[in-house]
């Protein structure tokens, strides 16, 4: 079978297999997996409201998936999308708060730009360290995640704190909010989803149609050969981490501008880590990532509904873990499929 078919088959079979394992776990705690999965599907797509919620959740996930996926294409494991998203969200909030009276035509792009810069700067620390000293990006980005997380919780309980109850920042200026394209009940589907999907297409063009994209992929595929061919590896590492961080930062900015209109402690809520699953399920392909993000968003939205039939929503994290495991060791899946073929 050719590579293209495997690229589809491995993630799909991995998801199916993971759902089967999860079903066994659900049986073990004495629940009916069919009831649980039915609740999950209804919770994600059962009515217009559920569907809207799924699309809202898809928006940042496409971007964190792109962030991790772009890193993978360049041979970098950016496990720090979470922290980059937080820094993007923080910077977008700080800028957005101070834009009262500025027309939306200026306020919206400005806020977005600073969100992108926040994520970019945060990722660049890891990129610079990797290029300069060889510090592995997995360790540095994890440390940067914790620093971002503690820093943001300091900011929203200290200098930026407003109101009582859950720590939160003030709202951003109305002109910096993204306009909704659809309002369903209390939910607003903002134009953020358009920006997310557009980013995926931009990444596709960058990777497939430009020289820079070619160089990125060359370094990711074989850094030594690429260097021999005259591509600077360290320049590539810094640039790729910056682009990866920019995408995660944009995810944070869009959550602030379209969803919460302020910074909250739960804003990132593991969406950066979900980016890893999404990139792997989407096989690091921008279009694949859009669908993978939709899948994970549906699992997340649906799992909230699953709680009502007595199945903790953590089952989704287990499913994601199993999928990643099988994609990492994709030979397991391939061998199972090939053996089946031979038997027939």
């Amino acid at each position: 079978m050719n590579r293209r078919i495997w690229a589809f088959l491995v993630p799909i079979l991995s998801v199916v297999f993971a759902l089967i394992v999860a079903a066994v776990i659900i049986v073990l705690i004495g629940q009916n997996p069919l009831v649980a999965y039915k609740a999950m599907v209804l919770g994600a797509f059962g009515n217009v409201q559920a569907f809207t919620d799924t699309i809202i959740k898809t928006t940042p996930l496409i971007l964190t998936g792109l962030a991790v996926g772009f890193g993978f294409r360049a041979g970098l494991f950016n496990i720090g999308a979470e922290g980059q998203m937080i820094m993007g969200g923080i910077l977008a909030t700080v800028v957005g708060m101070n834009l009262r009276g500025i027309p939306p035509a200026l306020a919206v792009p400005l806020t977005m730009l600073f969100g992108i810069l926040g994520g970019m700067a945060w990722a660049s620390i890891a990129g610079y360290l990797k290029a300069k000293t060889g510090a592995h990006e997995v360790v540095t980005t994890i440390m940067l995640n914790w620093i971002a997380s503690h820093l943001s919780s300091y900011l929203i309980t200290g200098p930026l704190a407003v109101g009582s109850g859950t720590p939160k920042s003030p709202e951003i200026a109305p002109s910096a909010k993204l306009p909704p394209i659809l309002t369903v009940g209390a939910m607003e589907l903002t134009s953020g989803i358009v920006i997310s999907v557009l980013s995926a297409f931009l990444m596709y063009i960058l990777l497939e149609k430009t020289t820079t994209g070619y160089e990125v992929k060359a370094v990711g595929f074989n850094p030594y050969a690429a260097e021999y061919g005259g591509i600077s590896i360290s320049k590539n590492i810094v640039m790729c981490m910056a682009i990866s961080g920019a995408l995660a930062g944009l995810a944070g900015a869009l959550e602030v501008m379209g969803q919460y209109h302020r910074f909250l402690g739960t804003l990132s809520g593991g969406k950066g880590f979900d980016g890893i699953s999404i990139a792997l399920i989407g096989q690091n392909h921008p279009i694949g990532i859009i669908f993978a993000a939709l899948l994970i968003a549906a699992l997340r939205t649906g799992s909230n509904n699953m709680q009502f039939v007595g199945v903790p929503k953590h089952i989704v994290t287990i499913v994601q873990g199993i999928v990643i495991f099988l994609v990492a060791a994709d030979r397991i899946v391939r061998t199972i499929v090939i053996r089946k073929k031979v038997k027939r």
């Binding site: 494991f77 994290t317 287990i318 873990g321 199993i322 994709d330 030979r331």
Partner: peptide, 21 residues
């Protein structure tokens, strides 16, 4: 012969999911 970093992060997710679950 899987990707060791990716497989390792899969185990982290499974542990986080399982303990919470």
């Amino acid at each position: 012969r899987g990707n060791q970093v990716v497989s390792g992060s899969a185990l982290i997710l499974i542990a986080q999911g399982l303990t919470g679950f």
